[in-house]
Simulated assay, not measured.
Amino acid sequence: MPTDLRRPARTYTIRQLCLEFKCTPRALRFYEDKGLLTPARDGMNRVYSYRDRARLQLILRGKRVGLSLAEIGEILDLYEADESGAQQAAKSLRKFNERIVALEQQKKDIDAAIAQLQKGIADAEKRLAATRPDLLPRAADYDQTMRRQLDGAA
């Protein structure tokens, strides 16, 4: 008589997934509402499977690179339709390439904005040095204060 030596299917609580992926229970419930996660229920408790965990990991990766939840859902749903993963891989490849193009454009836009701001700073410093040099140290102090605040918020 053969015995089943496989381990029982691993499950996760909402708390375990939140700790592992540094997200909130509200986010997991939101993804469930959107149909991206489908945890089982044990009374009032959600029980997440290994599949749910893998899907959450893909959702968070997709969000990190700027994919919409609809796009992430399309990619995840393709795995259900074709377990070989070929359709999912093709769709992912197309979406990822589109996202790279968009991010590269954003990078160019950001670089141009930074260059404009740096030119504005240089012009303002030059004008202050010529007309009100007493204000320049305060401007530098203000800049230092703002940088500290931004670094603290990060």
Rank of each mutant, 00 (worst) to 15 (best):
T3S: 07
R51L: 04
Q116C: 13
K126S: 12
R99C: 09
D134E: 15
L58M: 09
P133R: 11
Q16E: 14
A70Q: 09
R46S: 14
A86D: 14
D42K: 09
E125Y: 02
C18V: 01
E83A: 13
R127F: 14
L5I: 09
K34Q: 13
R148Y: 11
E20A: 11
L28S: 08
D134M: 07
F30Q: 11
L28F: 02
S49C: 03
Q118V: 06
D42P: 00
N45V: 14
F30G: 07
A122Y: 03
Y48A: 08
R148E: 15
L117D: 10
Q106C: 05
D143M: 13
R147E: 15
A113H: 12
A154N: 02
A81F: 04
L58E: 13
T38N: 03
G35A: 04
D52I: 03
R99S: 07
D143P: 00
R29N: 09
C23A: 00
D111H: 02
E104G: 01
D109N: 13
M44L: 15
Y142M: 14
D42S: 12
E125G: 00
R132H: 15
L58I: 05
A140Q: 15
V101F: 09
D33K: 07
S92C: 10
R61P: 07
D111L: 04
R29Q: 14
S49T: 11
I14S: 09
I110W: 04
A86R: 14
S84E: 02
Y31C: 13
P2G: 07
Q88R: 12
P39D: 06
G120Y: 08
R127Y: 15
A124D: 11
P25Y: 02
R138I: 08
